[in-house]
């Protein structure tokens, strides 16, 4: 069976896996972004706290994903739970780091000016600092998404959802006629998803980055 015949005859299953892959990654990225920006906001003004946040999250990223999933399985079992926890943790580092760097990069004179016209701390953060720090944060989110696409594939080994299942089915049936088709379908599917997400982020950047600071 040729590759396209394979894709044709298993279209529904592949689409379902792709949908689950994208949805798992997207949800975890959203959670990681919210949590990561929150960590950034809390820590960026204190040297030691920001250092601690970056060191902890980068140590997390040093941990190989299969080992992370391996350590989560005894605690939360197989399936969706270890996948979601691992993906969210791995998504944190790029977001936290870029949030801290972005918030620190805001010109203090602007913050001072905002204070001068009577903005409260919360309003300064929401109206001035976060919008100015948004481009690097968005870059972090993009990096996190690419990272999670690959890690989600590995999570399929712990009975997680998504296109990784295609790849592992192929590995399990090495030598059979469909092994190559399965692995290829899973791998290319993830590449396509990653590129689609990337395009979506370019668009999102156009829509959300304030006009005044667009490069």
């Amino acid at each position: 069976m040729g590759f396209w015949d394979y894709v044709g005859s298993y279209r529904e299953k592949l689409l379902f896996d792709a949908y689950q892959h994208a949805s798992a990654v997207l949800q975890c990225v959203v959670v990681a972004t919210v949590a990561g920006v929150a960590i950034g906001v809390v820590t960026y003004r204190r040297e030691w706290a920001a250092g601690l946040a970056t060191t902890t999250t980068s140590a997390l990223l040093t941990v190989p994903s299969l080992a992370m999933i391996g350590l989560l399985i005894p605690v939360v079992g197989l399936g969706v739970a270890p996948t979601v926890i691992a993906l969210t943790l791995y998504g944190l580092l790029p977001v936290v780091r870029n949030a801290i760097v972005g918030l620190r990069g805001v010109d203090p004179a602007l913050v001072d000016a905002a204070k001068g016209i009577g903005m409260s701390r919360a309003r300064r953060l929401l109206r001035v600092e976060l919008p100015l720090a948004w481009p690097p944060i968005l870059t972090g989110v993009r990096v996190a998404t690419q990272l999670l696409m690959g890690i989600a594939a590995i999570a399929a080994y712990a009975s997680g959802p998504g296109l990784g299942n295609e790849i592992f089915r192929g590995i399990a049936s090495l030598g059979s006629a469909n092994a190559l088709n399965q692995v290829l379908a899973g791998t290319l599917g993830i590449v396509v998803l990653a590129l689609l997400f990337d395009a979506a982020y370019v668009l999102l950047g156009r829509l959300t980055i304030p006009r005044g600071i667009r490069g």
């Binding site: 696409m149 690959g150 590995i154 990784g164 790849i167 791998t187």
Partner: peptide, 10 residues
């Protein structure tokens, strides 16, 4: 964008 596990399997 290519997942490591896919590359390895191929």
């Amino acid at each position: 964008a290519t997942p490591a596990i896919g590359l390895l399997a191929l």
